[in-house]
């Protein structure tokens, strides 16, 4: 599997385009089994194209990949590529679908914005912390901690002391993650501050123990 030429990139995009155009083709001779097999194969081809774009894709791949963020079968393949394409267009594409998605698909896009460390997503993610779906709210907290700016962390730290226990725990895990990043980058004092913030919250013992250990090893 060698993905290193522009020719292959173009080939991959052509395959993806063909997959989409085939979806509209008519063939009254097909029986159900054949049609289902083709559909499954079609999905597999798209999945493999996404896997290839995760290695060689650039900004020109982003619009095609973004279409798949609304596809329950292919969204995670598309996100793998969008998480690693080092171009602002990938982050913009992920942010642009936030208002149009819900449930698990929205959770996935939120997670990808966190993986990208997309600072421009912070305002939208702060709003999503208030989402009534706790999975969405929790993933927004994690994403904000991964982005890790002062602004984004203020929201996560505030969540340690408000709302249902499930979200306070999610906030604590997110804060401890950021504290660990700070320790690794040599910012022990800031890390300990975050650990103290977790220690001051009402949380299960094992999380409080982890918080008290921040900066001690």
């Amino acid at each position: 599997m060698v993905w290193q030429s522009h020719f292959k990139l173009i080939l991959v995009l052509v395959i993806l385009s063909c997959c989409f155009s085939l979806a509209g083709a008519e063939n009254t001779d097909w029986d159900e089994a054949t049609a289902l097999a083709v559909l499954a194969s079609d999905t597999e081809k798209k999945a493999r194209a996404c896997q290839a774009l995760a290695v060689v894709g650039g900004p020109e791949s982003v619009p095609t990949l973004a279409v798949l963020l609304n596809d329950e079968g292919l969204a995670s393949y598309a996100r793998t590529a969008l998480e690693v394409i080092d171009d602002p267009a990938a982050g913009a594409a992920l942010r642009s679908v936030l208002p149009n998605l819900d449930g698990r698909l929205l959770t996935g896009v939120i997670t990808s914005l966190g993986v990208r460390g997309d600072t421009e997503a912070v305002p939208a993610l702060r709003e999503l912390v208030g989402n009534s779906n706790r999975s969405i709210a929790g993933s927004a907290l994690v994403a904000l901690a991964r982005i890790g700016t002062e602004d984004s962390m203020a929201t996560v730290v505030a969540a340690l002391n408000q709302g249902p226990e499930e979200l306070r725990i999610a906030a604590a895990h997110a804060v401890l993650f950021k504290a660990e990043q700070l320790m690794k980058s040599g910012n022990a004092d800031q890390a300990r501050e975050l650990g103290q913030a977790v220690s001051n919250a009402v949380l299960p013992d094992h999380i409080l123990q982890a918080a008290s250990a921040v900066g001690t090893n």
Binding site: A54, V55, R79, T107, T111, V115
Partner: peptide, 18 residues
């Protein structure tokens, strides 16, 4: 080696994250 670095991770299917 950007291509190799891009192969170091995969996204998790929603709703899974860490």
């Amino acid at each position: 080696d950007e291509e190799a670095n891009r192969m170091c991770s995969r996204s998790r299917r929603d709703p899974w994250h860490v």
